[in-house]
């Protein structure tokens, strides 16, 4: 039972990280129908930015909640700018070309961030500073619930609620929903599609940066290739929930995190990566549009 609760905590923490990254995939897919392969690497850049901001601003020396908030905010801003830049340089010129050509530039950007990251940040793993002192909140009973776990889950939840507010209550959110409903019609209705797309990339990248910062807190080893596997898994999570669907991405992310930790704990850690995909394929075979996705009716 103790182990079960412990794995539940771990799974929820990882699940929230996956959910934050998956939201970025799902938003971009919703408006552009593009698998943004570079998204996982934006998450890596987020962690790296947080690392450097923490050192430059001196928060690495003295752990504090304010320091964490400032570092995370700066990293989110930097990555939002990076996301906008990627969209403008690599995706915008190809918008009216076959969809797969954008996929290849996405792969190119992903490789550029990975290899460029190895050059700029150095290929060796870095140790993320302890921005917050790890304390155990629940000492009894063999279950360790640290303040970092609570922080990761709490901040993720807050960001998700914030995103929901932006999407449902603001003008840009309404425009985003309109573009994802129909690109051409929304352009005809006078929505500036370029602005909407840039904002989509900025929002998604900021969420990825937040995820990167929080992963740095929990698993302090960060390196330029750290975005590869979580990126793919978060994308799988987005597909699992029904791509283009916000609650689906969150549910998919949580499901992904929980399954992975439970499989690693109870079955075999080597099969961990495969099980996620087995579940994905199982779900897709029963519900081809994902858990929350609406089946698309094709009109002839």
């Amino acid at each position: 039972m103790d182990q079960f609760l412990q794995q539940l905590v771990n799974g929820l923490t990882w699940g929230s990280i996956y959910a934050l990254i998956a939201l970025g995939y799902t938003m971009v897919y919703g408006v552009l129908r593009l698998i943004n392969f570079a998204h996982g690497d934006v998450y890596m850049v987020g962690a790296m930015c947080a690392f450097y901001f923490a050192h430059w601003l001196g928060f690495a020396a003295g752990p504090s909640l304010v320091g964490f908030a400032v570092v995370m905010f700066l990293s989110m801003t930097a990555c939002a700018a990076l996301g906008a830049l990627i969209e403008m340089v690599a995706y915008r010129p190809l918008r009216h070309q076959p969809r797969l050509s954008m996929l290849i530039t996405a792969i190119g950007v992903s490789m550029l961030l990975e290899f460029g990251g190895q050059r700029v940040f150095g290929p060796d793993p870095k140790f993320f500073p302890q921005l917050i002192e790890s304390r155990s909140l629940l000492a009894g009973g063999g279950v360790v619930l640290t303040n970092i776990d609570v922080l990761v889950i709490g901040v993720s939840l807050a960001l998700m609620i914030g995103l929901r507010w932006i999407v449902l209550k603001t003008r840009i959110g309404m425009a985003l929903r309109a573009v994802s409903f129909s690109y051409d019609t929304s352009a005809l209705m006078g929505i500036n599609v370029n602005t909407v797309l840039t904002c989509t990339f900025m929002l998604g990248s900021a969420l990825a940066a937040a995820a990167g910062t929080m992963v740095g807190l929990r698993n302090p080893k960060i390196d330029p290739l750290m975005g590869l596997v979580p990126g793919i898994k978060a994308f799988v999570a987005a597909v699992l929930g029904g791509i283009g669907n916000f609650p689906g991405a969150v549910a998919g992310g949580l499901l992904m995190g929980l399954t992975e930790t439970f499989v690693a704990a109870y079955l075999s850690s080597t099969y961990r990566d495969a099980v996620a995909f087995v579940i994905l394929i199982g779900v897709l075979l029963v519900k081809p549009a994902g858990l929350f996705g609406k089946p698309v009716v094709e009109k002839v």
């Binding site: 897919y29 087995v278 994905l280 394929i281």
Partner: peptide, 28 residues
């Protein structure tokens, strides 16, 4: 047989998944 029912990106991700499953099975 099962995956080719899927369309577009869903097929892509299902085949990606099978590729990874094949790899993990060989590793084990």
């Amino acid at each position: 047989i099962p995956t080719l029912r899927l369309r577009g990106d869903y097929l892509a991700i299902a085949t990606l998944g099978f590729g990874e499953i094949i790899r993990v099975v060989i590793v084990n």
